[in-house]
């Protein structure tokens, strides 16, 4: 046990305090110095500036799907047919690996024909093929995941449904994604 200035024993000496104070301040300083070196690898301002896009959807006919690029990733915009919507709604939630009703997959409740999805398989990031697979939605060629007409995982190794990006309709003819 450390001895105090006048010889009496103490639990913690001044030197202990100095060690901890200096070490603590040093750790804070090192962390502050390290942060710019870590943060520089995060998306830069020019990348963030491209984080939303506007898409003209007036030319997409019923049954057609287009793919647009948003933040470097494909986004599927599908103009669903009545049959596809009905098929998606007829499924029992209990059958789904990632249960989600179809109307939770469509952000505008009054436009159920528009299904907008991030076209990245939730398994390991490949782009699924349109109008393929056993459920009429998408099929991922990498490891065989099947998605239905609501973009929900039905069969295969993918753990989750295709992601729905944030978007809003700008009237009937355009949508802003992001």
């Amino acid at each position: 046990m450390a001895q105090g200035k006048h010889g009496q024993p103490q639990g913690a000496s001044r030197r202990d305090f100095l060690y901890i104070a200096a070490g603590g301040l040093g750790a804070v300083g090192a962390g502050a110095f390290a942060w710019p070196f870590i943060h520089q690898m995060n998306p830069s301002k020019d990348v963030l500036a491209l984080s939303s896009i506007e898409v003209d959807i007036s030319k997409i006919t019923e049954g057609q799907t287009i793919t647009v690029s948003w933040r470097g990733k494909p986004v599927f915009i599908r103009h669903r047919t009545k049959a596809e919507i009905d098929a998606a709604r007829a499924v029992q939630l209990g059958e789904l690996p990632d249960p989600q009703p179809d109307d939770a997959r469509v952000r505008a409740k009054d436009r159920p024909q528009w299904l907008i999805l991030v076209g990245v398989c939730t398994h390991l990031g490949c782009v699924p093929l349109n109008n393929q697979g056993e459920y009429g939605g998408w099929f991922c060629p990498c490891h065989g995941s099947h998605y239905d007409t609501s973009g929900r995982i039905r069969k295969g190794p993918a753990p989750a449904n295709l992601e729905v990006p944030s978007y809003e309709f700008l009237g009937d003819n355009a949508v802003r994604i992001g």
Binding site: P36, H39, S44, K45, V47
Partner: peptide, 13 residues
């Protein structure tokens, strides 16, 4: 200039 303006803390680095 991209480093100076866009990259996070690029000016500092």
């Amino acid at each position: 200039e991209h480093i100076m303006r866009d990259v996070n803390y690029g000016w500092l680095l």
